[in-house]
Design a protein around this nucleic acid. Structure first.
Lengths: 126, 126
DNA sequence: ACCTCACGGTCTGAAAATTAGACCAAGTAT
DNA sequence: ATACTTGGTCTAATTTTCAGACCGTGAGGT
């Protein structure tokens, strides 16, 4: 019995980073944006692409991304229905800093794994 | 009745981005890293800095960040105890792509707010 | 002597987010 | 008839997060 039909509270954060992080600072958003980078995809294609996201979270996160202007949703009223998701110019502009992040991840992944191993070794010295 | 005392499962994701995103792709990690960018901070200083994080999440997230090699934790066994958190070289190297992201957020925050307003206007056309 | 405060957490029970999986409509293929 | 497809939504169970109580130790106030 929520009064808000599924469109969250929409608090205006005075701090831009917080505001952006609230929406973007989660696994699924980043992953969806990355999946959409090469081009338009339909709902189920995104599901397959991301593979361990639930329908609900995909649906929800897509809605948020659409609301915030990162993607567009186009419904072709065929049967069965076809729905295509595409990055907007804003969404594409976001890709740039994001690719930096992905590149960083690629480069430093090994360091993280190494740090974890070290940490675990230390812990195991009872 | 978890066997792991509070140190999560440590799955080795074959995909570096996923692996990094699992830890970094959440509000608190990013916010903590940003808070530590200017320099070392103690636990309660971080609390004040971030302001709406709970002790538990701060503690947990710091532990993860330490484990993954982004920060170091130094305990000075005084009374009351003093614990300092500092970025490692790995952590500092992460700052670079992250600043890009923050800059993007600053630049495009207005676009997002505008998109939301547009979206809401459309929704209200019943 | 006694009370209170500070610090850096941990623990608990309640609240919120996420998950898996059932379900839906309507047309097409078998 | 039956089964399958798409893009979701709904529900119940699980997991995560939260707010707030609690902890020990020593210093400082009264």
């Amino acid at each position: 019995m929520t009064m808000v039909p599924d469109g969250e509270e929409m608090l205006e954060q005075p701090c831009p980073i917080r505001d952006v992080l609230d929406r973007i600072g989660n696994q699924w958003s980043l992953l969806i944006l990355e999946a959409l980078a090469p081009g338009t995809l339909r709902f189920n294609a995104l599901m397959r692409e991301i593979d361990d996201i639930s329908k609900q979270m995909l649906s929800r996160t897509l809605k948020q991304l659409e609301r915030d202007g990162f993607i567009t949703r186009t419904l072709y009223p065929e049967v069965p229905p076809r729905v295509e998701y595409t990055l907007t110019p804003l969404g594409r502009s976001f890709l740039e800093p994001m690719q930096q992040l992905v590149a960083w991840a690629d480069t430093h992944h090994g360091d993280i794994v190494a740090a974890r191993t070290r940490y675990q070794a230390l812990q195991e010295q009872t």
